[in-house]
Each structure stands twice: as structure tokens, then as C-alpha cells.
Amino acid sequence: MPKLANLQLGQKFTLLLLLVFLGGIIASSIALSSVLNRNAQAQLTTNALMLMETMNSVRDYTTNQVSPELTHRLETEFLPETVPAYSAREVFETFRGNPIYADFFYKEATLNPTNLRDKADGFEAQLVENFRQQGTAQETSGFRQTPAGDLYYIARPIKITKASCLECHSTPAAAPASMIERYGASNGFGWQLDEIIGAQMISVPAEKVLKSARQSLVLILGIFILAFSVATLLVNLWLKRYVVRPLNRMAQAAEAASMGDPSAEFVVNSKDEVGKLAEAFNRMQMSLQMAMQRLERYREGRRNSGDFSGK
């Protein structure tokens, strides 16, 4: 690699721009990637929270509207439609029936559920354990990998806060016979008041949103690189025309003047620093010519006076 001092002015300027560009592209890509990822996560969070609150509304409607209307039947038979968790899950499964939303998931993941479809998997069980250990945590979120692709989830602890919940989940003997007949007596019992028994989870597909963020990053960086390339080309053309070429002409004129060419002249085409430098060279050349003329007249006078020493 040639030494910096051996590079031409245009090459030095291009190298400087390249270094500035590389630093700028690295810093801007990191900052832009962070901003786009935050925006993508904010969009995912908004979608997930909207669905979560919708499911909570279904739960509230089931508790306040559906269950009271079916109280007389609950005395003789178990109706899962009166269970808020069951209603919310069924409504969401209907929602997922639309192919557009097939990759959205809702689950009240429970360590010891009555309905085994609510059984927490390994990942969900760890979230429940985290809620139990933290005690006061109200919500957690993040990304998880599944066969359906990357999902963004929001999870909230499910805590037994009402003694009425234990009517069906304390012991098999206390539970309605119709519930035992439907789900069996092996699961969903032994719950305790104020115990965190599961996690309410909503999961939304993240791949499309994250892919869109990555595409935006590539597009913006591509525009930035293109703009820099054009700017570098224009700067080099300008530098060559208004700086390098005038300096080369001045160098040639200075070379000619040093060889004694009295017609050598530094052309002044501008009023900038390069033009001022050319004017200074012209004044220096005129001063040199005047000095040479005075010296020649002095020598001529000495010769005419008979002094041929040449001193």
C-alpha cells in the first residue's frame, strides 16, 4: 500500500471521504437497526395487547353475562361455556380459523389444568415458574422460536384470587360430577388460594414484521451508499477541475519559470485560495523578472565602464 504522502491530492481526499463514510455507515446502521427493531417490537406489542384485552373482554362477558344466565343448568350439569378460560380459547380458535390469523395463538397455559389442551409446555412452564419466583411481576414479553416460526409473546400470571374458583379445583370430591365425567379426576385439582397456577399468553407472528424492518434497513442503507457514491464522484470531479488542474498548471508554469522562460504565467480563473495562490506566484515571477532585469542592467553598466570582472 503506498504511503499517504505519495498519494495525489484527489486520492487523499477520496480516502478521507471513504473513512468518514465507513464510520458513518457503521454508526448509522447500528442506530437505524436499533430504531427499526424497536418500532417493529412496538408494533408487535400493540397487536398482542389488543388481542389480549379482547380475550379479557370475552372472559368478563362470560363471567358477567353468560354464567348468570345458565346458573339453573349448572346445578345439574357442567357447561364449559361458562368457564371464562374456555370461552376465550374457543373464541380465539374461531378467530384463527381465518387463514390470515392462523399463526396467532392464545393459551392460558397451566401447570395442572383441567383441560389438557391448556397444559403448559416446557417454555410456558418456565414462564410460570418465573412468575412464581418473582411474585410481583405483572407481565413479561419476548420472542420464542416455534415450528410455526418466530413468535412475539406477552404473558401475564394467572393467580387464584377468588375462593369460588376452588369449587371446581380443590378436590375431585368437591367438583361437579359432570365435570369429572368430562375431564376425569386426575387433573386440575389441588389449586390453592393466591397461588399462581399458569400464564395467560398471547403470541403473534414476528417474522413478517422483523423481515420488513430488515428490508427497510437494507433499503435505507442502499440509498445512503448510493448518495455517498454520487457525492464522492461529484466532489472528485469538482476537486479535479477547480483544485487539481489549476495546481498542475501552476506547477508546470513554475517549472518553466525555473528554467528561465519569461513567458511562463500562472492563469488566474477564480478568487478563491487557488486563485490567490496563482496571483502570488505571478507577483513573485514579476519580481524575479524585475530583479533579473536590474541585475542585467547592472552587469551591462559594469561592462560599459570597463569592468569585465563579471562581479
Rank of each mutant, 00 (worst) to 15 (best):
A85S: 11
R89G: 00
F78A: 01
E69Q: 15
V83L: 06
A88H: 01
L70N: 09
I100W: 15
F78P: 00
E75F: 09
E93D: 10
L79E: 05
Y106N: 00
Y86L: 02
S67W: 07
A102F: 14
R73I: 08
P84N: 06
T71N: 12
F92N: 00
F95L: 04
H72V: 08
L70Q: 05
S87E: 03
E69S: 13
E93L: 11
T94V: 11
L79D: 06
S87P: 02
A88S: 10
L70C: 09
T82Q: 06
N98I: 14
E77M: 13
P84C: 07
E75R: 12
L79S: 09
P84S: 08
L79W: 01
P99R: 12
F104M: 08
S87V: 00
N98M: 13
T71R: 14
T71F: 06
T71M: 07
L74Q: 11
E75K: 12
G97A: 11
G97P: 01
E69Y: 10
F92V: 04
V91F: 09
H72F: 09
D103Q: 13
Y101C: 06
A88M: 04
Y86M: 03
P68D: 07
P99V: 07
S87K: 00
R89C: 00
Y106S: 00
F104E: 04
A88W: 00
L79H: 05
R89V: 01
E75V: 14
Y106W: 08
Y101N: 12
E77A: 13
P80Q: 09
T71Y: 05
E81R: 13
E75C: 04
D103W: 02
H72C: 04
F95I: 04
T76F: 08
Y101E: 05
N98K: 13
D103E: 15
F105D: 02
G97L: 10
E90P: 01
E93V: 08
E75H: 14
E69I: 11
A102Y: 07
R89I: 03
L70E: 10
E77C: 06
V91I: 13
G97Q: 11
I100D: 15
Y101I: 08
V91K: 01
F105L: 10
T71L: 15
F104W: 12
F78G: 07
L70F: 15
G97I: 05
P99C: 09
L79C: 06
R73T: 10
F105T: 03
L74P: 04
A88G: 06
F105Q: 02
L70M: 13
R73W: 12
E69K: 15
F78R: 03
T94Q: 13
F78S: 03
T76Q: 10
T94I: 12
E81V: 13
R89Q: 11
E77F: 12
R89S: 02
F104P: 00
T82A: 06
Y101P: 03
E81K: 15
T76G: 07
Y106K: 02
R96I: 03
P80C: 10
I100P: 02
Y101M: 09
I100F: 14
P68K: 04
F105H: 06
H72K: 14
P68Q: 09
E81H: 15
E90Q: 13
R96H: 11
P84L: 05
E75I: 05
F95M: 06
E93W: 05
H72W: 09
E77N: 14
